[in-house]
Amino acid sequence: MKTFGGPVLFLDRSDINTDEIIPAKYLTEITKQDLKPYILEDLKLPGFDPKGEKTKAARVIVSRANFGCGSSREHAPWVFEVNGITAVIAESFARIFRQNMFNCGMAAIELPKEQLDLLFSHAGNADAAISIDIEAQTLTASGGGKQKVFTFDISPFDKALVLAGGWVDYADSKY
């Protein structure tokens, strides 16, 4: 099973859309690896550099409401995956993006706003990190010498998909 966790990339805005995550002009790439350099290329946020060290080091993204809205392109989770980011934590997700994440065996985790605010309070710490235990449904946020544990909800189906490594094999053996 994949492990989830590591350095965090904080994207402090709601409604980050799939065109910002991976612009349509790169949808002509045939392999996932080819998408790698274009992660979050069109996202404009103060202090954010899509090509910066923080983006490179990130293993988890923490963002706000309605993350992943817009296009159905699974290239959005893929561009994260090939850059080593296998979990996104947000207040809410667009449906297709959320399902795409789980279908790929990645995690899209929803936390209430107050808890996200606590996570964002770590944004200034260079060593901010999060580790996620899908089985136990807990995530541990650390940074600046502090540590805090949160619990989260995940539907049993989504959990099964993450643990099975995705939907294709699951469905082919079952239906």
Binding site: E74, P77, F97, V168, A171, D172, Y175
Partner: peptide, 13 residues
């Protein structure tokens, strides 16, 4: 609308 994996399963099953 669905992603590529859902589409794959749709095509297959």
């Amino acid at each position: 609308g669905v992603g590529t994996t859902d589409l794959e399963v749709g095509i297959l099953k």
